[in-house]
Design a protein around this nucleic acid. Structure first.
Lengths: 214, 214, 214, 214
DNA sequence: AATGAATGAGCTTTCATTCAT
DNA sequence: CATGAATGAAAGCTCATTCAT
């Protein structure tokens, strides 16, 4: 009732024990979402999976939303980290292959979580802007890469870099989700190979000063 | 939801008035899902939007799930219908353009609904197999098309037709959703153009016995 | 979660049955507050007392606060209605007696409810301004009465009408509450007599052109 | 609260440091109740305000109720202490003025606390009898004073001393609370003057063998 | 068929109290 | 003594579904 809502963003755990419990809850929450979707994602289920009592949930998270945000944040971090292609790789095609390989390998479940949030019941403004940021990271990176290849005369100059990045990025993103969802198991290695060839061909990537075969 | 309840599957409406009410509910439900996501999708909201009383909902639908299934079914029908490319079109590239144009034009919101269901809280076995069917329709069709082009020497013979269809189909599907989601408005005509060029280049589509430019 | 809070001020009951249930809840709520204080005032207790199921509460009230506000509003109305002194009474002292008699007779429990709200755990801005209004009704009326008596030379002209009204009004209010609270039962008739004599003497009320003793 | 729990009544603090912590909690608790009402009165808030850790609360108080009782006890003591009129004052009217002045000056917030407890959620038998004692102190004292004045021919002999004491005591108590509650700030000096004149006039106090004006 | 009130299991959150360190 | 994590009963509220009219 009129009571001022307390629920102050709980202080980060001060002790080791606290940190352990906090992490256990985070992990349990992530697993439940990944494996059961929204259906099982209740504070009760999360605490049970983490092996702590009901109330402990609110020692570490201000609300179910709060935990969700942190799970999403972690998923985003994981994806972005996993997507970094080493600067030592210089060959454009090799960079594409590596980007796709890394993305599929590491980001599958994380990507699924992001999608679920996007279409799920729980989209508030915080989450929405987080998702936009992530998308922008990928689109921006792809856009930049295409622009550079075009400048170097290595890619079709008629393509709009942003639209192209949106489309091809979407392709990879979608495949990542399918892999985690589909019964028909896809051979990940072959998929990486295909995605990379499709991507490269699509933008008309040519080996620098060479015959155009890869 | 998920709560298994025995509920007599309501008989299809006999009277004209009944049919009208039924359709009003279906339409209202679809709109709510498309525009507000799960948040607003309650029997109460649906009946209000349809201008009928609360209880009437269960005169026409056995449950919320039941309505949802019917909405999804309708969305699937809409997409598939929208995707039919006239048999009179013979030029492969023109067929690609037409397919993409039709898809984006008509299937955007329907595609969004399917995605929502896929990741939403309500995925039961009925829905799952419905989704698989739909996906198979698209993947199968794409696969078949690629296979034919390869047989005719018009597409890169090294590509696995199924994987390729999955990837490129995902690209278009994803873009369709993005168009309904993104702040940054995309020019649909330009997008169709890009998707088509990307798709064609990706599979190495060549005009039969010609110069290879489009 | 992000879900837009529904809870729209429920529509007033359309049917007779609805009206009956609504009133039963209101009555049950009032009784519980009057008899048990805050402790027992839960939606569960109220619905049980009214003989309906838990959820029915929210068919008629948007929240516990909502019911509380309506109870307080009703208590305020009751007090104010009960406090109307007929215009046909002209003798100043008789008016004082009548006002006190009516107040004690009818407003005891209602006054207790208002006090509880004032000091209870549930004071939001709506309630606060409602309480201020009520107090102003009494203080203003008392002030006006004193001012008129002073103008007519019937009351001590040195008294500040507002401060006096606050103090003497407080006296009667407090006694009303005590009567409902105290073990030691007070004879209400005698109390009315005393309050009236104290009030009259306090302001130096004199019978017009008369001996001034009562 | 209300939940009966066995909790070892903590021993009174042995060390100086212990005494300091104990007093800090008591003070913090009192301030919170006075300033925020029940809303903020939680062990967590009290310990935070006192600058000690959560668990420390139960080192010094068996329960929240226990702290509350001690706060109420302290409020009662404060009021009663503040109400002592020096025996050296003999003039009846001066005694009335002094009593009111002291009461308003020192007992305002304490009076508010007592009222809150009276109507709040936490009235157990201990508290109830404490409140009755306090009320009896005031009523008894007022009753005695009136009786004496009547015996000395200085006050209206027709008044029932007990009823009169209840009414006039209520008046002052109520005003004390209002001063701490009202937006419209009251001039305390003027209020003391009015209360005293009203009280004196009400009982028909006459300067012994004198002109009757004050 | 239509209406709208009734139902109650289930969910999120709070918080007084306990306990391991 | 002090700390702060852990506990779990209880509260407020939602909403898919049922039912009397």
């Amino acid at each position: 009732m009129g009571r001022a809502r307390t629920n102050p963003a709980p202080a980060p755990p001060a002790t080791t024990r606290g940190r352990r419990t906090h992490d256990a809850l985070l992990t349990a929450g992530r697993q439940i979402i990944e494996e059961q979707g929204w259906a099982g994602f209740t504070p009760e289920a999360v605490t049970q999976a983490a092996g702590v009592s009901y109330g402990t949930f609110y020692t570490y998270f201000a609300s179910k939303d709060d935990l969700l945000r942190k799970i999403v944040q972690a998923a985003a971090d994981k994806m972005i980290t996993a997507s970094r292609v080493p600067d030592t790789l210089h060959d454009p095609y090799a960079r594409i292959v590596e980007a796709n390989r890394l993305y599929l390998a590491a980001a599958g479940k994380a990507a699924k979580v992001l999608r679920m949030v996007e279409h799920g019941a729980y989209l508030d403004d915080n989450l929405r802007s987080l998702l936009l940021e992530i998308r922008e990271f990928y689109v921006g990176r792809g856009e930049e890469g295409i622009r550079r290849l075009q400048a170097d005369g290595l890619a079709d100059p008629d393509l709009d870099p942003r639209l192209t990045a949106i489309a091809l990025g979407g392709m990879v993103e979608q495949v990542a989700v399918i892999i985690n969802e589909l019964r028909e198991p896809l051979d990940e290695e072959k998929m990486v190979d295909h995605l990379s060839r499709l991507w490269a061909s699509a933008i008309g990537l040519r080996a620098p000063g060479a015959t155009g075969q890869r």
